[in-house]
Design a protein around this nucleic acid. Structure first.
Lengths: 235, 235
DNA sequence: CACAAGAACTGGTCGGACCAGATTGTAATG
DNA sequence: CATTACAATCTGGTCCGACCAGTTCTTGTG
């Protein structure tokens, strides 16, 4: 039994990826610029070519670079061709400080996804679904006392994801998971702003509306909550 | 200039990934089951452990397996913990035959994303934005004669993505790109159903509404288009 | 000057050696 | 007999160096 479940220590690959993504996101090169070859970088950094290659694969998945096989690696126009992973990479590096515009876009999408799921769940909810949500809520309430920000945020995320799972629209769950990293950043901020007690109360109100099969009410609760959050954020 | 940009031939890693994802998606194992160790699989398939490891990294990114370091690799509950990459993997394997439920969820999201972008663009459009869209449309019209399904679908995707880019809400573009693979499957189906001429006409109507700064009109055109598509699909 | 051969790149693949954490089996200890 | 301590042996994780196959640039030949 170890008190620290894992403390893997940064690997060379992780170092490389972090270093490169920082440099690219900081604008060290312009989109379209050609990067040094894998061999050059490997020699310069004193690591193996395989590590560099594997790192670039990851950077390509993040949408930060474009690999032209046998030809070269180029800085990508990530604001045009990037994807969710790009956003996650930005969230990871810039910490919890996302721009307002980013927040707005994310919340628009969350409303679309979770709103759809809420309406569906209200129609088809079974008694055990409601019980399950209540159990999750009380687990969060117990956890809130110890107040580990990140952990609490994770549980709020899971509570809302459960809406998608229970709704039966499994695809929505996949989309929800896709936004996991960026959602955590949101929840940390939300909990700081409103406090856990308020947030937990809202979970219970959601549960009641689901139990009453009030789809529109649940949707509106979500929508007004988001609108209020954005209004507060404006200041 | 070569007519065939690339025909790389399947690598051992690709083979491995395809083989494993097929097996998992086909339900050969249950979620939570432990897979054979990297060494066993490498020996069995006659390939290097590095290849297997790299392949599993990719499968983990697709949400199909969960890697517990130093312990084992397990089949993931991908319908619960999967992400967009999982969906893309499914779309890749099952071809263009996505289930109706999947299509509905995707279109719900597209409406949320693109609808938001449309409204924003109608507000802030500049004359050159409209001209740009018109240029894209006529390029598509020229292309439609040669009628390569996949290529045409790609251009329709790009046209609609351009809405997001021009709207200035760059984050929406990232989400749009995330759905690229699955969107292509949609557009191929759409074009088969309605034909290119009809689809191109719609692009022009969108452009006119944007020029007239009619945000609601543009949104409704999108919404009714999607609704009609779903209605037809019902049959 | 045109153009093709080839040298010198590029990224892509691969196997095997080594590392360290996790697990399991076993033997010593109370 | 239960418990603990420890070591053998699993696991995935990392890394290197060699090799492969396209791409691009240089160079020599007509």
């Amino acid at each position: 039994m170890n008190q620290e479940p894992k403390r893997p220590g940064p690997t060379k690959k992780e170092d490389f990826v972090r270093r490169m993504s920082r440099a690219i996101l900081a604008g060290k090169w312009n989109p379209g610029d050609r990067l040094p070859s894998e061999r050059e970088l490997a020699a310069e950094l004193g690591i193996g070519k395989t590590v560099v290659h594997s790192g670039f694969e990851q950077l390509a998945a993040m949408g930060l670079v474009e690999i032209k096989p046998k030809s070269g690696i180029f800085v990508a126009d990530y604001m045009r061709n990037g994807n969710i992973e790009t956003l996650n990479a930005i969230a990871r590096l810039k910490g919890d400080e996302l721009g307002r515009e980013v927040i707005v876009a994310i919340l628009d999408l969350r409303l679309a996804i979770e709103g759809t799921a809420l309406r569906a769940l209200c129609q088809g909810r079974r008694p055990e679904d409601v019980a399950h949500l209540r159990a999750l809520t009380s687990a969060i309430r117990a956890l809130a006392r110890r107040s580990d920000e990140k952990e609490l945020a994770e549980h709020f995320f899971r509570w809302h994801r459960e809406i998608c799972i229970l709704s039966g629209k499994s695809i929505l769950t996949l989309f929800m998971n896709t936004m996991h990293e960026v959602s955590i950043a949101f929840w940390v901020n939300y909990l700081r702003m409103y406090g856990p007690a308020f947030a937990i109360d809202r979970l219970e109100r959601f549960t009641e509306l689901i139990e009453a099969r009030d789809g529109e009410g649940a949707y509106n609760l979500l929508a007004t909550g988001i609108a209020d959050y954005l209004a507060r954020l404006g200041k």
